[in-house]
């Protein structure tokens, strides 16, 4: 690990100033950053430790019905907050299906949003990677890319975003609150992460010094609480990143889907909101034919970036299953194996 200056700002303003310098980066729990630093992937000159900032670790119910989650709320604390889990069950389920209990105890909400891809070539500083080093090339293309992107990728980068948490968040129109050099602004989560295009090194819409201070869920997000699920296919029952995942949330009235939300994980460089599929579902009866049509719509633009054509078909099937599960109703309690098809009753709910 390269030596770095350690700065512990007392205020958000101090933090923003300290982190706006070239070579500086924010440190929250460090569950991803320290891993990257140990691997030589990230070599910051300065760490701006925000974990001691006051007031960023609260879950607040706002007057307009929105829920504001402080960026320093720990993933486990959020998932285990009973009121939160009741209002936003798919988000809680996604949180609990990520990483391990130890990592969830440490990892923060803001940090989860900003975790980097798990592409092995990104993680290996001796491989060429446009995301890590602009213009160096992409060794994942033509390499071991069975788990890489099938949506939104470019010739320059085929990495995926690894977060589970972000998938239902993006489905439910989460807003990211940011403090930066020019003050506070906000951004739909869907606009936080960028697709690689010609500049994969620009992973997010954040500018130097920008600090995510909160994630906000609009009041409408809880309208889906009765029919919301997260489903994740992985290569171990637990403690593994998604091969593909999906968050499905439905508002069902009088036997019809009034509104649908759908997002996919593990398929693109960002949590993938499937708006075309949502449009298909709107007004339809919650039945297999509609789910199947939605799945086709969600993956219309998908194409393999390597040895990963199976992920397209898998993603379609996960969409159908997640919608089926959501339509059947949110379970009263998060299953023993969160987001797993082996959670009891997860197949034909």
């Amino acid at each position: 690990m390269k030596p770095f200056d350690y700065v512990r700002p007392a205020t958000i303003a101090e933090a923003v100033t300290a982190a706006a310098q070239p070579g500086a980066t924010y440190l929250a729990a460090g569950t991803n950053l320290l891993d990257l630093m140990k691997g030589g992937v990230s070599r910051p000159d300065r760490l701006v430790d925000v974990t001691h900032l006051q007031g960023l670790d609260k879950i607040e119910h706002l007057a307009d019905g929105a829920l504001r989650i402080g960026a320093l709320v720990r993933n486990a604390d959020l998932a285990h907050d009973a009121a939160f889990a009741k209002a936003h069950p798919a988000i809680a389920e996604a949180l609990l299906s990520g990483a391990s209990a130890q990592l969830r105890n440490a990892a923060t909400v803001g940090g989860n949003l900003l975790q980097r891809t798990r592409c092995a070539y990104f993680y290996d500083p001796t491989s060429r990677c446009n995301r890590r080093e602009a213009g160096s090339g992409c060794d994942a293309r033509g390499g071991e890319n069975r788990l890489h992107a099938v949506l939104g990728w470019s010739e320059n980068c085929i990495a995926t975003h690894p977060s589970d948490f972000c998938v239902p968040l993006v489905a439910l129109d989460a807003i990211v609150e940011i403090e930066g050099k020019s003050g506070r602004r906000e951004l739909p989560l869907d606009e936080l992460h960028r697709l690689p295009g010609a500049a994969p090194q620009r992973e997010t819409a954040l500018e130097p010094g920008d600090l995510i201070v909160a994630v906000r869920l609009p009041a409408t997000a809880r309208d889906f609480a009765g029919h919301a699920r997260y489903l994740k296919v992985r290569e171990r029952t637990s403690y593994a990143f998604a091969v593909v995942s999906a968050a499905a949330a439905l508002r069902i009235e009088n036997g019809k889907i009034r509104e649908a939300r759908l997002a996919l994980g593990g398929v693109a460089a960002k949590p993938w909101r499937a708006r075309a599929a949502e449009a298909v579902l709107k007004g339809a009866a919650p039945e297999p034919s509609a789910f199947s049509e939605a799945a086709q719509a969600a993956l219309t633009d998908a194409k393999p970036s390597g040895d990963n054509a199976f992920k397209i078909e898998l993603a379609r099937r996960i969409v159908v299953r997640a919608l089926t599960l959501a339509a059947a109703g949110t379970p009263a309690r998060i299953p023993a194996l969160p987001a797993s098809p082996f959670a009891s009753g997860a197949l034909h709910a």
């Binding site: 798990r118 092995a120 070539y121 290996d124 390499g143 290569e235 029952t237 637990s238 403690y239 194996l337």
Partner: peptide, 25 residues
């Protein structure tokens, strides 16, 4: 162990992606 066909390097040389069973398995 996943070996890159071009370089002979193992691309999952860790315990995160080289999967051994966890308790839940």
């Amino acid at each position: 162990a996943i070996t890159d066909r071009r370089t002979g390097r193992i691309m999952n040389a860790d315990l995160g992606e080289y999967h051994i069973p966890v308790n839940a398995d």
